[in-house]
């Protein structure tokens, strides 16, 4: 008999600190599978900022850099600009990317920075115990919206793929989910495409992954999957929001 499914090499064989049923683990695996399949672990550098995934440097076998909250795209820019032949990705949560790090996100996109941003949207701040995130849905109860998020008081969620697809420097923006096997396969395909974009120097690529947070949503892992399907996907429609095949830069200029 031969093995048909096992841990990818780019994912270190250690238990993770993520809560039971937290889909961070799935995204870690499909990202590592893409790195294995492209054979690029040796020249990939990952940047993980503050959030539940801040300790991802203990989980990925490629070189890793821990960044300040919200600053991963800037750190990644510093890495990529001085090491253009290396693959650079960031792995960020919604608070990190769409609250404190909004400027870094928008500007690395509008610069067409040749990096891959893996954006985990679980509508909450997980590591700090369940506070409102920029993607928290209207009416959603969190530690800092105990009566449900009221737009009058706390405004509306940020739709990141829609926002960034308006920027010329964004080559590829797709929103995926990891709530089911078909969706996980599609998510992996999107991550692979993002890395291929980077290889071809097409510009900024972001994959927004709708993800669960059973602990802070106060749901069981399977109930959390259901909430993602019933509440998040309708508010954050899956799909490709931008895909510039020929890349964002004029032919003769190129990114280098």
């Amino acid at each position: 008999m031969s093995v048909v499914f096992e841990r990818p090499h780019a994912l270190i064989d250690v238990p993770t600190h993520y809560c039971p049923g937290c889909t961070h683990g799935i995204v870690h695996r499909i990202l590592a599978e893409v790195i294995d399949e492209m054979g690029i672990e040796g020249n990939t550098i990952g940047v993980c900022p503050v959030g539940c995934s801040v300790m991802a440097y203990d989980y990925f076998n490629c070189d890793m850099i821990e960044a300040a909250h919200g600053r991963a795209p800037a750190v990644a820019t510093g890495v990529k600009r001085t090491n253009p032949d290396k693959f650079v990705f960031t792995y960020q949560g919604d608070g990190d990317l769409a609250a404190i790090g909004t400027a870094e996100t928008v500007h690395s996109a509008t610069r067409g920075e040749n990096i891959v941003v893996i954006f985990i949207n679980n509508t909450i701040y997980g590591m700090t115990g369940g506070q409102m995130a920029p993607t928290t849905l209207p009416g959603q109860v969190t530690q800092t919206t105990p009566f449900g998020r009221s737009p009058q008081l706390a405004g509306y969620p940020v739709k990141v793929c829609e926002m960034l697809s308006q920027l010329t420097g964004t080559a590829y923006a797709e929103r995926v989910a990891v709530d089911s096997v078909p969706h996980i396969k599609a998510a992996k395909k999107a991550i692979r495409k993002a890395f291929e974009n980077q290889k071809a120097g097409k510009g900024f690529s972001i994959v927004e992954v709708l993800s669960t947070c059973p602990t802070n949503w106060g749901l069981t892992p399977l109930e959390a999957i259901k909430r993602l399907q019933d509440e998040m996907i309708p508010y954050y429609p899956l799909g490709v929001y931008k895909d510039v095949e020929e890349g964002v830069f004029p032919a003769e200029g190129g990114n280098e």
Partner: peptide, 10 residues
Amino acid sequence: INMVLGAAST
């Protein structure tokens, strides 16, 4: 400064 951190890390 965070871009500096990134470049310096390499």
